[in-house]
């Protein structure tokens, strides 16, 4: 950890200050995932701040070709979070945007590039942070049943998030992890893709739902709201009202009843 050291009379207190990047989808759709993330970071002994002016990481614009809007939002994130020791997001997609794509976005802005790179190095997906930086030993949650884990694309392929969520799930009393086939294959969300190419997106989601159904579990757990909305939306339309679709933060924090 790179602590932020406070000299307090004769003793030195080390406090790691985390900036929680809530993400726009958590803010709008599933706020309790944000609170679950807060709870977990505090359980790891961190001080968490939530910059109130935060909005969006810029990914929608970046991936749709509107680089100008994306850069403006990236500047905003940089200004709001650069005083934090770490930035943590309950999303592989948003953390991946900051960590792997901000250097490209700032590549022709020499004055800000170095600052952006420093922010990238300190930006983590939630489970990655909890395992590799926060070294969380015990998790608050319990879960009675079998779950399978869906690897979201950005977390897996941009940030190497694969073993982290599984090692955390292994700490949840009562939870049994049962791997499904093709856990690493995209659910078909892809941001604007899900709207523009709805039929193809649904077809890909169906394949994911088939694999979830074949695993025969109580819940599918994942780390990104985009995949969550897509998978849950397709499961319900197929008539599966039973299989829960849960964000890993909810499960780890013991907040999985929503």
């Amino acid at each position: 950890m790179v602590p932020h050291i406070i000299h307090h009379s004769s003793i030195i207190v080390q406090i790691v200050r985390i900036g929680l990047f809530v993400t726009c989808l958590v803010d709008l759709i599933r706020p309790h995932i944000g609170f679950a993330a807060l709870k977990l970071l505090e359980a790891a002994g961190c001080e968490v701040v939530v910059p109130q002016r935060q909005t969006c990481c810029g990914q929608p614009g970046y991936n749709s070709g509107d680089r100008k809007s994306a850069l403006a939002l990236a500047r905003k994130v940089l200004a709001e979070f650069e005083t934090c020791d770490y930035v943590v997001a309950p999303s592989g997609s948003c953390a991946g945007m900051i960590r792997t794509h901000y250097p490209d976005l700032f590549s022709d802005q020499p004055a800000e590039l170095e600052r952006a790179k420093r922010l990238c190095d300190r930006t983590y997906e939630l489970t990655d942070f909890l395992v590799n930086v926060g070294k969380l030993e015990r998790v608050p949650g319990t879960f009675n049943g079998e779950v399978t884990y869906h690897d979201s694309c950005s977390g897996l392929r941009e940030l190497g998030v694969k073993s982290q969520p599984r090692s955390l799930l292994a700490k949840v009393p009562g939870l049994k992890l049962k791997e499904m086939d093709e856990a690493e294959i995209c659910c078909g969300f892809g941001g604007a893709f899900a709207l523009k190419f709805g039929e193809i997106s649904t077809h890909i989601a169906d394949r994911k739902c088939d694999n979830i159904a074949a695993a025969g579990v109580d819940a599918v757990v994942l780390g990104d709201l985009g995949c969550m909305l897509n998978i849950e939306g397709r499961l319900r339309r197929r008539g599966d009202m039973k299989t829960k679709v849960l964000h890993i933060a909810e499960v780890l924090a013991g907040d999985s009843e929503g």
Binding site: D27, R30, P31, L195, K196, E199, A205, G233
Partner: peptide, 18 residues
């Protein structure tokens, strides 16, 4: 419609995180 022709859209909780 691109979304809801083949999927439901899970509704928000009602209040935002902030």
């Amino acid at each position: 419609g691109g979304w809801t022709n083949g999927r439901d859209f899970p509704a928000p909780q009602g209040k935002t995180f902030r």
